[in-house]
């Protein structure tokens, strides 16, 4: 049974990765990262059940908190980006290169 959870989790995680490397919109990218974190959360909860310990749950909570903090920051970044260039395409922001 546990394998199923893990496989699902890894599928979600991989989807997140794909999103990060394929999408250019900042929002989508951050959503993909959220997806990856949620994949981890899924694994935490499942494994916590497996081991019958609460560590996994705690971790999941922590991850959620961190995700929220990062999301807050991400929103700030989005605003800044929009302010500077009016666009949210990550490719636009490639002044620093070479």
């Amino acid at each position: 049974m546990i394998q199923d959870y893990l496989i699902l989790s890894i599928i979600l995680f991989s989807l997140g990765i794909l999103g990060v490397i394929s999408r250019r919109n900042v929002f989508t990218v951050f959503m993909s990262i959220e997806l990856m974190l949620n994949a981890a959360n899924l694994a935490f909860i499942a494994l916590s059940r497996l081991h019958e310990s609460m560590d996994g749950h705690v971790l999941a909570m922590m991850v959620m908190a961190v995700a929220a903090a990062e999301a807050a920051l991400a929103l700030a970044v989005v605003i800044l980006l929009h302010k500077h260039k009016g666009k949210l395409d990550t490719n636009v922001f490639s002044l620093l290169r070479g």
């Binding site: 990765i17 990060v20 490397i21 394929s22 999408r23 250019r24 990218v29 990550t90 490719n91 922001f93 490639s94 002044l95 620093l96 290169r97 070479g98």
Partner: peptide
């Protein structure tokens, strides 16, 4: 190597992957 530093963040993520 300079060429590899394209400046697109997506590409950097791709390198990681």
């Amino acid at each position: 190597f300079k060429v590899l530093q394209v400046g697109y963040v997506r590409v950097y993520a791709l390198y990681m992957v």
